[in-house]
Design a protein around this nucleic acid. Structure first.
Lengths: 202, 202
DNA sequence: AGCGTAGCCATACGATCGTATGGTCGTCCA
DNA sequence: TGGACGACCATACGATCGTATGGCTACGCT
């Protein structure tokens, strides 16, 4: 349970742990309190209702996601390199990243039936697509704006689909195969990794 | 609520309606009974436990999904045509198909945290990938087996990602745009639709 | 005619849920 | 020093949950 500052953040981390372990219906105030080693009242003190608790937990994952994304974009690398790094972040393979994929799946399913969650999800994914489009446009100045937008949508859908598959069906789609397939897709889109860029991704 | 045969199937249809309307946590024996206009005991009579009820509901969607897929594959059309039809089925756009997408999202999220659901999902999606690979291999005899498998995995991930996006973010990814993007992807994979094939899809 | 059985209902039990209420303890400021 | 306040806890309330139990009706078989 990394990156915990303060008692209320600790509660949110416990919420996400429960979410990954048992899904949405595994969450109750009592269970969160027990997982954090505090009383029911303590949870209520920091978050007045269950909805507020869940909303804060969702905000936490959004914020951490944005931070991770920013960290990948920050260095002044070329757009193709950054695109590869962002795609790797969205694919979020690796055993330690599975919780992120599971939370993403759970949130997406909730967004399908819960409008407030859907609103947050829509805004976030729109921003991600904009980022991808910007990077693709920079790496491929020959493409028209509409083609860039199409490529961004396709890439994001591909990454979403592969990330879900890796999380739920590691037999059919192992993590390294997903990475290979994404790399192949990006090779076709922005050209293969050049010698100078190779191995510089984090 | 179409295709209902018998009282127990009616209960399953009500389960799926509730699932689409309120997600997984919106389902309870009492609510299913109320939606179907029967008593709690009637639900228990047909499905001894809640798990059995949900498992049967999942089986129902699997069965109906397989039937729809078979209907698309059945006619002796060329592999490229069939591939387009199957892809259209998996994308499941259209307002009347949104419930299918939502149920798929909910089931996927549950599979991420509930092993029995994951087992069913894995088996089904493996079959779908096999079907796609078979069709791609037939349409593109020039491709090596591994390349065919890769294309199948990529196509399935793309369809999954787009279907989820259409269901949750119709603003960012409208249904017709998703269809266009898939058509473009398939054009690149198995060639554009020929004059003789055009318009013959259902 | 008698009886088992399937289909369904009414009700009850214990558990767990979200939330409300009121108290306790420490800290900090006047 | 004293009191306001934030952090936390213990407990209670009403609702809803999954499941168990037992009874009632209609129909088929012998």
């Amino acid at each position: 349970m990394p990156d915990v500052n303060g008692p209320s953040d600790r509660l949110l981390a416990c919420v996400l742990d429960l979410l990954v372990a048992e899904g949405y219906e595994g969450i109750s105030i009592r269970r969160v309190a027990a997982a954090a080693g505090v009383s029911i009242g303590a949870v209520q003190h920091h978050f007045p209702t269950k909805d507020a608790l869940l909303a804060a937990a969702m905000d936490r994952v959004s914020q951490q996601f944005q931070e991770r994304l920013d960290r990948r974009v920050a260095p002044g690398a070329g757009p193709a390199e950054v695109l590869r790094a962002v795609a790797d972040e969205l694919l979020s393979t690796g055993e330690e990243r599975r919780p992120a994929s599971v939370i993403w799946l759970v949130r997406m399913a909730r967004a399908a039936v819960h409008e407030p969650t859907a609103a947050v999800h829509r805004q976030e994914w729109q921003q991600v697509e904009d980022l991808l489009a910007e990077l693709i446009g920079a790496a491929r100045p020959d493409l028209a704006a509409q083609a860039v937008r199409d490529e961004a949508t396709v890439l994001l859908a591909l990454l979403d689909g592969l990330a879900g598959a890796v999380a739920v069906e590691p037999g059919r789609v192992p993590a390294d195969r997903a990475e290979t397939l994404v790399a192949r897709h990006l090779d076709a889109l922005v050209g293969p990794v050049s010698a100078g860029q190779r191995g510089r991704g984090r």
